[in-house]
Amino acid sequence: MTSREEILARLRNNRPHSTDYVLPSLPLLGERTATRQRFEENLKDLGGQVLEQQEGEIFSEAIARCFPDEKVICSAVPEFDGTLRLENIISPQQADKVDVLVVRSPFGIVETGSVFLSEKELQHRNFAAHLTQHIVVLLSEKNLIANMHVAYDQRTEFREARYGVLMSGPSATADIQGVLIRGAQGVRTLRIWWE
């Protein structure tokens, strides 16, 4: 008997009477308003920020204003070049040198201020989202989803992506004496740019 067969046989033997335990159907629970304001509040709770557009400013100017000292600005979006295009990165070692990554997210979740990224947006360089020091995520208000239930119900990305991450603010830790530190081992800051 293989280990697989052995485990399955033991489970069949030992399990509680299976018809006693019915799978519940899932109601769409939770707050259902999907406003930009609520998204921003929840994003900030988790340490994320909004890159506010100043009067008459275009995106590249906002990036220059926000990151005056950063040298390697890597872009994964067609309309902005940065200093390096993501498709030209061929190794994690190269991505480790990136200061700022600019990428577009297909949707955000209001309840938690999360943005979704997959290999599609990251052009099969998933590591780039975590090796870069800072990340700026372009997001459209019309792609806001109210909460997790609705997101899993409606967004096909969860079923299609090979790798799909919900990022909710920057990396963080409180492992040393309970002190919350934003910017642990992944991105040190996460900013949303509304488009």
Binding site: D45, R162, Y163, M167
Partner: peptide
């Protein structure tokens, strides 16, 4: 667990990377 609405990363792995 921590009293935060979600972990900073919620990652869905379905298939190997290219």
């Amino acid at each position: 667990a921590l009293g935060s609405p979600i972990t900073q990363y919620t990652t869905h792995f379905r298939a190997p990377q290219k």
